[in-house]
């Protein structure tokens, strides 16, 4: 089956799971609200009665921004804590939610409900947590070894440069290589998860090892499919930025901007589901064949 057909199947599956999209969006916004609420209350306390409070919504201005930086200088450590703790919890939560996402994608024609979604979350959590631990090895190899070697090669290229061009080319090329290699590692462990669900297996190490031969045989096709979904993310982002630049922002128009922002977040969550669904269809077809 060609990658475009697989992509189409993935889109169809992701579209069928709209309810799951809402669950994931609610999770995202709830955690974000936990982080933002203290900031909101601080601003409300200090700015709601000040004339400067009316300006802070009208784009950045260094007068009020300077005041905020100075005024809350003692709060930064606690504000960082307010971000980091929910971020870690959110990360762990997503290990849990990934089970529900893949589980419900695998249950092709079954309607998503809270109970079957969370049942899958629970069912796969410990397996996925083990996969996460194993994936740390992959990320260590990527960032601790491969990227260091690549950086050393780039340094050789740029250290005797006589203009700024090699620096610009190399830093952007390095970024591109990092993104591509990262996508490979991420894709690898996505397939391990998907195959664990398809095969309903608990043997995470075995699944990881067999995934090498599975992906090794069809690497470029799998990767192209993965990158194709990645292009969707880029397209959504470009569309978001383009329209956001022209949206009116004065007064209550910010509500329209807010809705547009939430649509963008929904698109990101949808593409996350799309990654898993295309991977699911590919793995399913390959295993069946």
């Amino acid at each position: 089956m060609g990658i475009f057909k697989l992509f189409k199947l993935g889109v169809q599956t992701a579209n069928k799971k709209a309810r799951m999209l809402i669950y994931l969006w609610l999770t995202n916004i709830l955690f974000s609200l936990i982080v933002v609420s203290p900031v909101y209350f601080l601003l409300q306390k200090d700015f709601s009665k000040s004339l400067l409070g009316d300006q802070i919504g009208e784009g950045m201005n260094l007068i009020w921004f300077g005041d905020i930086i100075f005024k809350y200088r003692d709060f930064y450590p606690s504000l960082i804590g307010v971000f980091i703790i929910p971020a870690v919890l959110f990360f762990l939560l997503y290990i849990y939610l990934n089970g529900g996402i893949i589980g419900r994608i695998a249950a092709q024609d079954v309607k998503v409900t809270l109970s079957n979604f969370f049942s899958d979350c629970g069912k796969y959590f410990f397996r996925f947590f083990r996969i996460f631990l194993i994936s740390l090895i992959g990320y260590f190899v990527l960032f601790g070894v491969v990227m260091k070697l690549i950086s050393a090669l780039f340094t050789l290229w740029t250290k005797n440069a006589s203009t700024g061009w090699p620096q610009i080319f190399s830093s952007n090329l390095k970024l591109l290589i990092t993104v591509l290699l990262f996508s490979i590692v991420r894709m690898f462990f996505d397939y391990v998860r998907v195959r664990l669900v398809i095969e309903d297996s608990k043997k995470t190490i075995k699944a990881t090892l067999t995934n090498f031969s599975f992906l090794g045989k069809r690497f470029f096709k799998v990767w192209l499919l993965y990158l194709l979904v990645g292009v969707v993310v880029v397209i959504f982002s470009v569309v978001y930025i383009g329209i956001n630049q022209i949206l009116p922002k004065a007064g209550l128009f910010f509500i329209i901007v807010f809705i547009w922002q939430q649509l963008y977040i929904l698109s990101k969550i949808w593409t996350k589901m799309l990654f898993f669904s295309t991977e699911y269809h590919y793995a399913k077809k390959s295993i069946t064949n």
């Binding site: 933002v36 409300q44 700015f47 009665k49 919504g57 009208e58 939610l97 807010f258 996350k272």
Partner: peptide, 28 residues
């Protein structure tokens, strides 16, 4: 008091935080 400016700024912060969290979810 009026809160519209604060709502606007906070909604931007919320959006940035949501993006950060979505990015974090990609690592899980």
């Amino acid at each position: 008091p009026s809160r519209i400016g604060i709502w606007k700024l906070t909604s931007k912060l919320l959006f940035w935080t949501q993006n950060c969290f979505q990015m974090i979810s990609g690592l899980s």
